[in-house]
């Protein structure tokens, strides 16, 4: 039995195809990004080694830091919106009829492609005929803004479809965690005279804390590498007002042919994401998980 189940040839045959694919298409490119970052390279001509020049330029590049700031603002915003999702999930999980259907309705935007979401919201934000301004004008607002053309508001306007896209996802996760709480625990508190708010705050929240912490990491890391929707909706514009790290990197490489410099930015994106992941994990780690 044990001999059959530890046959080296079989193991290699079954695991190597998958392992080779992720090695060649994920891990090697990640390492190469750091290496290409050391090169002066336009994607066509031969590379020329220039040491840390690209990285030094990146650190002094105001545009890069501006895009990084936008990415971190997005991360902050996404993390704060988790509280809203949590509140909705608490309501949804408190013996509401139709919660299953509602949860599925909430999830629908998450299933659409970023391109479809972006194109739809370009229309929603359209200054003269979009859904949003039609509603605002019907409510008596005279000059509603051109949401995506206004440098001071474009970034916040883009937050709305992002919130729209992910609401269902986080509500789904919190709902599942809340439904995992054993009923007798909540029942006992109720018999002892706890109000619904007290039950939510003192019993349910501590019990799903570990799940909440995982979602914080997901929201922050997801925000730092966010790309598709912004790239399609505004291309980072107007004038860099909605540029994020990934869109800045992508445009450097594939629009300006600065493959070396783009790689350096890409490698910084990787490093920043990893460092932030470690910090957030450490910051939210608890000594002991609550058992129930």
């Amino acid at each position: 039995m044990n001999k059959v189940m530890s046959n080296k040839w079989i193991i290699a045959l079954y695991v190597l195809p998958a392992l080779l694919l992720i090695a060649v298409l994920i891990f090697i490119p990640l390492i190469l990004t750091g290496y290409y970052g050391l090169m002066d390279w336009n994607g066509i001509a031969t590379m020329e080694f220039i040491g840390l020049e690209n990285y030094i330029n990146a650190i002094q590049d105001a545009k890069f830091w501006e895009s990084a700031l936008h990415s971190f603002l997005l991360a902050l915003f996404s993390t704060l919106s988790l509280l809203v999702y949590l509140a909705i999930s608490l309501i949804l999980a408190s013996k509401i009829k139709g919660s299953d259907l509602l949860r599925k309705i909430y999830l629908i935007p998450m299933l659409l492609s970023s391109v479809a979401i972006a194109q739809l919201w370009i229309k929603v934000f359209n200054p003269s005929n979009g859904m949003l301004n039609s509603i605002l004008m019907a409510l008596g607002v005279d000059n509603p803004p051109a949401w995506l053309a206004e440098p001071s508001i474009v970034l916040y306007a883009i937050f709305i479809p992002i919130l729209w896209q992910y609401a269902g996802f986080y509500i789904l996760i919190y709902y599942a965690a809340l439904k995992n709480i054993p009923e007798p625990l909540v029942e006992a508190a109720r018999i002892d005279g706890a109000t619904p708010l007290q039950i939510a705050y003192k019993i349910k929240l501590p019990l799903i804390m570990s799940v909440f912490k995982v979602t914080i990491v997901l929201a922050i890391v997801g925000s730092l590498k966010y790309f598709d929707l912004i790239y399609v909706m505004t291309g980072g514009g107007p004038n860099g007002a909605s540029e994020v790290m990934a869109s800045y990197m992508y445009k450097l490489a594939f629009s300006s042919n600065e493959f070396g410099y783009g790689s350096a930015i890409g490698f910084l994106l990787l490093i920043i994401t990893l460092i932030v992941t470690v910090i957030v994990r450490k910051a939210t780690a608890t000594k002991e998980e609550i058992q129930y």
Binding site: A18, L19, I22, L25, I26, F27, I28, P29, L30, L32, T33, Y36, V221, L224, K225, F227, A246, M249, Y250, A253, F254, F259, G262, S263, G266, F267, L269, L270, T273, L274, T277
Partner: peptide, 18 residues
């Protein structure tokens, strides 16, 4: 190794992949 693959930002790999 497979689980690390869940965490990495894909855009960091796209220039070398290209």
């Amino acid at each position: 190794l497979f689980m690390i693959g869940l965490m990495i930002p894909i855009h960091s790999a796209i220039i070398p992949l290209f």
